[in-house]
């Protein structure tokens, strides 16, 4: 469904200079500057990413509401975006995110073993966080690293052609 019109700009009548931190505001502003002035909402995805990163990897309703204020958006439009894209988390997360690609090329090269290994060794199912809060295990769809299968996205870094042992080493190095 696409609304064939300008964004439904809302003046929330809140002081934007009290939201987030000066650094985050500056970073969001840089994104806002990329788009036509009436399309502040184009910055919603990078804004969600920035705010999520600064909040331990997940988004609260209050944070989404603040983004709505900052970008003159209806809160609902922010919720829709935050729930549509897979990289936003609306539940508390572990200190790290271990995202194992489960799509076809990685599956053919052993991603199932990786997942089973982590499940058994660390006692987490995909979507769950280890008891010590160290990491959240995620099964993700194709990471676009098919020639280096199986691939794992650990926080912001790709790790490729991983065996269970190699993945263990990576996890061991996590704080």
């Amino acid at each position: 469904m696409s609304f064939r019109n300008l964004p439904l700009a809302i003046d929330h009548e809140r002081d934007k200079s009290t939201l987030f931190t000066p650094e985050i505001r500056a970073a969001i502003d840089k994104h806002i500057a990329k788009y036509p002035s009436e399309w502040r909402q184009s910055a919603v995805m990078p804004a969600l990413t920035l705010v999520q990163d600064a909040n331990g990897g997940w988004l609260t309703q209050a944070l989404m509401d603040d983004i709505a204020v900052y970008l003159d958006m209806p809160p609902m439009s922010v919720y829709e975006v935050a729930t549509f894209y897979g990289m936003y988390d609306l539940e508390p997360q572990g200190r790290h995110k271990v995202c194992v690609c489960n799509s076809i090329s990685c599956m053919l090269q052993g991603s199932e073993e990786l997942i089973e290994h982590v499940e058994h060794k660390y006692g987490v199912k995909p979507g769950e966080t280890t008891a010590d809060g160290r990491f959240t295990l995620k099964e993700v769809e194709c990471l676009g690293a098919c020639r280096d299968a199986p691939a794992v996205l650990l926080d912001k870094t790709y790790h490729e052609k991983l065996s269970p042992d190699a993945l263990d080493k990576l996890i061991d190095d996590l704080e």
């Binding site: 609902m76 919720y79 549509f84």
Partner: peptide, 24 residues
Amino acid sequence: AEVAGVRELGATGRGEEMRIGTFI
């Protein structure tokens, strides 16, 4: 969005997880 001018109801989530509601 178009008539009321207030987005009280939305479609959150994706695919078969899509839900119509106020979300909050």
